[in-house]
Design a protein around this nucleic acid. Structure first.
Length: 255
DNA sequence: ATGACTCCCAGTGGGAGA
């Protein structure tokens, strides 16, 4: 079984690339972030033609998430229950015996800003909800665009990024607090090529120079950890014309 | 170097992203 996450930065623009990628990577489920589409405009027909059923949760211009599965997902939840939020950032469903959570963490703009405070509150709410989700569903995967580079080795230039948004001690502590619920970063279960990133700035020829960050993650619950066989980042789509600034992350489970 | 690119909604500019 294979799962994936991809911040597509506008599904309207990236739909052809998504369909092409799914042809070459026929994953069982994929979560998308930054679809930037209201649900009325979600391309259900094209996605069904590709063999997937979609659960979407979007808004105009910003944010927006979706869960695509080979068969229908059940027990679908939108956003974080109990956390009042005008932004569409989380979609959860049951599929293949797993609880699958797709999340688009807030960016946070800059340490000390209102958006940074929102980011921290949002993660705290996610964590408290996850605690109960994990209790109810021990076999759980949380994946998406976390907008956090967990360690210096996830940053191309740790000195330049020190204390900057995505790399602050506070954000990293929140990332570790998620792991302490009983989750593990699937990417770090394996030897990985050095300087493997999931996001490269559109500017400054950052991709060509491989100046990126690893901010897109797949966390699996402790119960699933023994079944994880691989976790990779596919940078190929970043080479496309008009690419998303993020690359997809994949996990393979032996089940 | 307070930049750089790309998206969106807008409407020949500006906010947001990371």
């Amino acid at each position: 079984m294979q799962l994936a996450t991809w911040n597509v930065n506008s599904l309207a623009v990236r739909l052809p690339q998504l369909l092409s990628w799914l042809e070459s990577h026929p994953v069982d489920a994929i979560v998308l972030q930054e679809t930037k589409l209201v649900d009325e405009r979600f391309p259900h027909a094209a996605i069904e033609a590709a063999g997937y059923t979609a659960q979407c949760f979007g808004q105009k211009t910003y944010n927006g998430v979706a869960l695509l599965t080979r068969g229908a997902a059940s027990d679908v939840v939108r956003n974080i229950p109990g956390f009042d939020d005008a932004q569409t950032r989380v979609i959860t469903g049951h599929y293949g015996g797993l609880r699958v959570i797709g999340a688009y963490f807030p960016n946070g703009e800059a340490p000390g800003s209102d958006k940074f405070a929102y980011k921290l509150r949002w993660i705290e709410a996610l964590r408290e909800w996850l605690r109960s989700e994990l209790a109810a569903h021990p076999e759980l995967v949380l994946m998406g665009d976390f907008n956090i580079a967990p360690e210096d080795r996830d940053v191309h230039d740790p000195l330049a990024w020190a204390g900057q948004i995505l790399c602050t001690d506070e954000e990293r502590a929140h990332f570790r607090a998620l792991l302490e619920l009983g989750l593990v970063d699937a990417f770090r279960l394996f030897e990985q090529p050095p300087k493997t990133w999931s996001w490269w700035d559109y500017r400054n020829l950052a991709f060509r120079r491989n100046q990126g960050l690893r901010i897109d993650h797949i966390l699996v619950s402790d119960a699933l950890k023994p079944s994880v066989q691989a976790c990779t980042i596919d940078k190929q789509p970043r080479k496309n014309p008009r690419p998303s600034d993020h690359a997809p992350v994949l996990v393979t489970l032996g089940r």
